[in-house]
Design a protein around this nucleic acid. Structure first.
Lengths: 232, 232
DNA sequence: CTCTGGCATATTGTATACAAAATGCAAGCC
DNA sequence: GGCTTGCATTTTGTATACAATATGCCAGAG
């Protein structure tokens, strides 16, 4: 993370509103397919319609909303095909990040990552799921940072946010969890060995497993938070 | 220049304004780093500031503008690092498109592509550069369509627009042109052979060559249309 | 002569008023 | 009875007025 020399993170109203809406969408308060009434939302957020509409445009560009002319904005409802597509792109991006990281990684970075891997295995052994997710995210962030590619990071974050709007809790069963931890270890070893192709394959495969888990969860209609299909 | 101030009469005003601005940026009427005065632009486009601001948000999300709080919008000025990053991501995306295309391609598609390849070689033999570019674009579009991944297509188009804003005329010298045509032929053969890995490598390499050409062009300060570095 | 502080001006940010379009309902027609 | 059609209401789209912030200039002190 840079962000050290930013003047001051003085947020403008449309940005703040967008942030707020993003959170509402991700936490499920605004579920997929929900119609967003401008007047109602502007009252609820305490801003007027003008900045709110700019927020809508931002979220629509991120793929979290769809805007229909003269018919307002809706929270996007991803179809299984969309999810598959998004994961495919995420895989390609992570793979690229891995290759770039290999080219730029220093010994100190590898030591850091090994330390994180150790923490992850501790969390895993202790069945500390939240801790695991936290470390997991740290490791992936670290890899993306090593890639040192702003466009990549930006694209990755946008896609990630879109998928998070699904609120998938792909129930991590013990076998899959074990496998994921093992895969992480292999990743770090591939990075240490500067084997870009191997790292790429590992990252792509890792993500493909997650994709399958999410798609399986979508099949289960009992999980009402995951609604796919087309919007009526 | 052609301030054909015809009040835009299309779908929604913000979208139309964004389209118009996008064109102005790509054709260089609004050069990199240019400050966009809301009032002046709104008069020039014949729209009021409100829809114009929504257009700004859209273009900023596409990476064509940067918006500074209370200091308005500027046309983005890509640094060489940004260009490198964007091309790296484009390469990953094209590579993915190739792999997906291999998985989904039908014989009829291959025949179509071979026909296009033939046209391209005719254009090449006749030193018809515009024709070459047209066919080139058709082939790449066809590959992306074969990938059948909306997220991929969307991401690809956005990045492509951002790079086009550079208005790079990477002067295609005869040797590079020959090579590019040969690479295209190899791509189609890899696709016909359903060799995804080979196709991916070809696409990535192909794009890497273009990246190098653009970066070289950026070095040449005499081409005033390509300005990199930070904005003062 | 340079630097600082404060004021005038220009520009962006936000709210609100008004216009246009879509939606829902009900009455009339087939 | 089902379908269409026109009106009332709701909702979105746009313009403009007002507020907040930044910018540039000028005067005065050092």
């Amino acid at each position: 993370m840079d962000g050290s020399a930013l003047p001051i993170a003085r947020s403008t109203l449309p940005e703040a509103a967008a942030e707020r809406l993003r959170a509402l969408i991700i936490e499920g308060e605004l579920p997929p397919g929900a119609k967003l009434n401008e007047r109602e939302l502007s009252e609820r957020l305490g801003v007027s319609r003008t900045p709110l509409r700019e927020a809508f445009r931002m979220l629509a560009a991120d793929g979290l909303l769809v805007q229909l002319p003269n018919r307002g904005a809706q929270v996007v409802a991803l179809s299984p095909a969309d999810v598959r597509g998004a994961f495919e792109v995420m895989g390609a991006l992570e793979g690229l990040a891995g290759e770039l990281a290999v080219a730029r990684v220093a010994e100190a970075d590898i030591a850091d990552l090994r330390a994180l891997q150790g923490e992850m295995e501790v969390a895993h052994a202790g069945r500390d799921l939240p801790g695991y997710y936290r470390i997991n995210r740290l490791i992936h962030d670290r890899l993306n940072a090593l890639a040192d590619n702003a466009v990549l990071g930006q694209t990755y974050r946008t896609l990630n946010a879109r998928l998070h709007a699904l609120r998938f809790r792909s129930n991590l069963n013990p076998a899959k969890w074990d496998q994921a931890v093992a895969e992480h270890r292999a990743m770090i070893e591939a990075l240490a060995a500067r084997d870009g192709a191997a790292l790429r394959d590992l990252l792509v495969g890792h993500l493909r497993a997650k994709q399958q888990a999410v798609l399986d969860a979508m099949e289960n209609k009992d999980d009402k938070n995951l609604q796919g299909g087309k919007v009526p």
